[in-house]
Design a protein around this nucleic acid. Structure first.
Lengths: 214, 214
DNA sequence: ACGATGTTAACTGTCGACAGTTGACAGCGC
DNA sequence: GCGCTGTCAACTGTCGACAGTTAACATCGT
């Protein structure tokens, strides 16, 4: 079974290349050689170029004229700017979620929180997968497709930043608490509190990230 | 004098094609024929395709597999979703502007407001140019490059929606008042009020837009 | 006359090759 | 020995042509 079989070569290449970047197989700072990567993927340069430009539009690659594409490296200012954007989007999403959530949404959010705690207690090394799941569930509850789309793009960039960063257990503990508080505010239908909790949550994550690469 | 002479053909084509779409020369719903447009622009299909994909990533074109690109047509739900995103971004920008504004920022914002009123009183048909200038000045004051970038993309889509919409004088009057109130809140360094005014301003603009195409 | 089916034309998706530019290396002058 | 300049290789940017798919049209059957 190959779901993306109907996609164009360029479309498939977008997914493949995205994975190569997000997994760090092409590390930050590394340049992308079109001919080399093209024959490595067994395709021509045309579709590969389209995939590269697409990933560049998502911020996972940066283009320099006549110098090709490379994986971006971020400094403190970049992280700050990125998290300001993320806060703008996710705080709004939290507000909308608090306004529009259904009982089913709350159930789902609670389930993700519980599973996160279970995984954390079980000593799982990367419950980050569940962190993404939580934020995704929140976006579902917000029912704002455009905001959801932009959040996904920002989260991707955050994942890129995280690649090659050690995990921080006490920080993860705090995040679990934040998530619970968020669900409580959303379940209570309190937009402003949900927004506030989200803002503080992201401020903490941002601060942790800044110290992790200072 | 040709400023974009150093840019790649694809880069120039992005600007040209963007203008063709935003001015309505290629109207919403129209499809884009690659070979025809390519020879019309005097270039090959390669750079044109890259430009098309780029504009698609900005939301100014939509791609259908094996059916090419076309200018998107928006329904009420699209407008709603777009303005939810715009509100998330611009409310955050208003907050940041209120926190970070300098005296020079306030002077600039006041100047734009005054010029808008002058143009409106003089009976200028499209002070929309000055509306964009105002929001741009606000973004400058916010000093958040990523948010500013996203706002510009959203505003572009709004411009596309406006293309082929009649102007509404009483609505413009209200917008001028909104802008003044925004500057006042920003000058006072009151983020929550700035955000609130912005939210109401955008709600009004959105509502006006929805009625204009109902 | 209406619907289903085969055919065809147009357009997109993909490929390989050429041209132009960039950055680096080697050679020369000081 | 150090700096400058000319040359060269590598890579990107661009082009034209081929292959595959889609949708519309015409044809055939009922």
């Amino acid at each position: 079974m190959t779901p993306p079989l109907h996609m164009s070569l360029a479309g498939q290449t977008v997914d493949v290349l995205r994975e190569l970047v997000l997994t760090g197989e092409i590390p930050p700072g590394a340049r992308v050689n079109e001919v080399e990567l093209a024959q490595r993927l067994g395709i021509s340069r045309g579709p590969l170029r389209e995939a590269i430009r697409h990933l560049a539009s998502e911020g996972l690659l940066v283009l320099a004229p006549h110098r090709g594409a490379s994986v971006p490296t971020a400094d403190a200012a970049d992280v700050q700017a990125l998290f300001e954007l993320r806060a703008a989007l996710e705080c709004a999403a939290a507000e909308l979620a608090a306004s529009r959530r259904t009982d089913a949404d709350v159930v789902r959010l609670r389930a993700v929180c519980e599973e996160s705690r279970r995984a954390y207690s079980a000593g799982e090394r990367f419950p980050y997968r569940l962190d993404l799941a939580f934020h995704q569930s929140l976006l579902d509850a917000a029912r704002s497709p455009r905001i959801a789309e932009q959040v996904r793009l920002v989260q991707q960039r955050v994942v890129l930043l995280r690649s090659g960063l050690r995990d921080d257990p006490p920080h993860q503990q705090a995040s679990l608490d934040d998530h619970d508080a968020l669900v409580t505010a959303i379940a209570a239908g309190d937009p402003s509190r949900a927004s506030d909790v989200m803002r503080k949550h992201l401020a903490r994550v941002c601060a942790q990230m800044l110290t992790s690469l200072g």
